[in-house]
Simulated scan of single mutants.
Amino acid sequence: MSSVLDVKHVTRRFAGLVAVNDVSFVLDESEILGVIGPNGAGKTTLVSLISGTLAPTSGDIVFQEKSITKLPAFRRARLGIGRTFQIMRPFPGLSVLDNVAVGALFGRGGEADLAHAREKARAHLDFVGLGRFIDQRADELGGPARKRLELAKALAMEPKLLLCDEVMAGLNHVEIDEVIDVIRKVRREGIAIIVIEHVIKAIKSLSDRLLVLHHGVKIADGAPDTVLSDAVVIEAYLGRRRA
């Protein structure tokens, strides 16, 4: 199996703060990598470095055997990197359908025709279970539906790599299970996925592998059961006394 993504010794500094510190890992085709860690560990910064909304201070990011470190976010999207955002910001005033059509227009497929983009958008909305909301304004959706909208927008970009930033946060158990089912269906399409999540039970059942960040440093990377029983990981989450 060939690798889709190779993150090599990536560091990101903000003035005196090192948000991501010399992080390296490889992601294979159709693999789901869960990224976990305490608040402020650098998880979202890492995803932003991969998607191109932030530039690394040092290191290299290789996507499908080509360095993308110096490419802007829109070029990476065209190559096949899609992401959801922790803070959901649908395009205000646009329908659910047209929010997703934007992804089809500017993603890897680069759909030039709005009518065709809307066709693709309908298919992706059906895929995530939002087909009945296509004519509703996106900013009128409730929280759980907005999570699905984020997924549909990212999938409409036809990614080879999907970056999911807390798509299960704030959902109940039933909604979490539904999102997990959607992500598993995405993987069956051959898409590699990185998932940031605080719901440990969900991330454990979903991920092939877990990577743990703490103060920007990778402290563990391996099978979920092995990682979650690691004393260093337990201490990072619970503190030394409780661990």
Rank of each mutant, 00 (worst) to 15 (best):
S2T: 10
S3I: 06
D6Y: 10
D6C: 14
D6Q: 15
V7H: 06
R12F: 11
A15F: 03
A19Q: 05
V20E: 06
N21Y: 07
V23F: 11
S24C: 14
V26L: 02
D28A: 14
D28L: 14
E31C: 01
E31P: 12
V35N: 11
V35S: 09
V35Q: 11
I36T: 11
G37Y: 13
N39Y: 05
A41R: 00
K43L: 03
T44M: 06
L46A: 12
V47K: 00
S48Q: 09
L49K: 08
S51T: 15
G52K: 08
L54Q: 14
P56T: 04
P56H: 07
V62T: 05
V62S: 02
V62Q: 08
F63P: 14
F63K: 04
L71Y: 13
P72S: 06
A73L: 08
A73E: 13
A73F: 03
R75S: 12
R75V: 14
R76A: 06
R78C: 01
L79Y: 14
L79H: 05
G80Q: 15
I81V: 13
R83F: 05
R83E: 05
I87Q: 01
I87S: 09
I87Y: 01
I87T: 07
M88T: 14
R89C: 03
P90Q: 03
F91L: 09
F91M: 09
S95P: 02
L97I: 00
N99F: 02
G103N: 10
F106Q: 09
R108I: 13
R108F: 15
E111Q: 13
L114G: 00
H116T: 15
H116E: 15
A117Y: 03
E119V: 12
H124T: 12
L125S: 06
D126T: 11
F127A: 02
G131E: 09
R132Q: 14
F133Q: 11
F133P: 00
I134K: 02
D135C: 01
Q136F: 12
A138P: 02
A138K: 05
A138V: 04
L141G: 05
L141E: 08
K147V: 04
R148K: 15
E150K: 11
L151R: 07
M157T: 02
E158K: 04
P159L: 08
K160P: 02
V167M: 12
A169E: 07
L171C: 01
N172C: 14
E175M: 02
I176S: 05
I176L: 07
V179E: 10
I180T: 12
I180L: 15
I180G: 03
R184T: 13
R188H: 12
I193W: 03
E197H: 08
H198M: 11
V199E: 11
V199K: 01
I200A: 05
S205H: 14
L206S: 11
D208L: 01
D208A: 03
L211K: 09
V212L: 08
H215N: 11
K218C: 09
D221L: 15
G222N: 08
A223N: 10
P224G: 10
D225I: 02
S229N: 14
V233A: 06
E235T: 14
E235C: 03
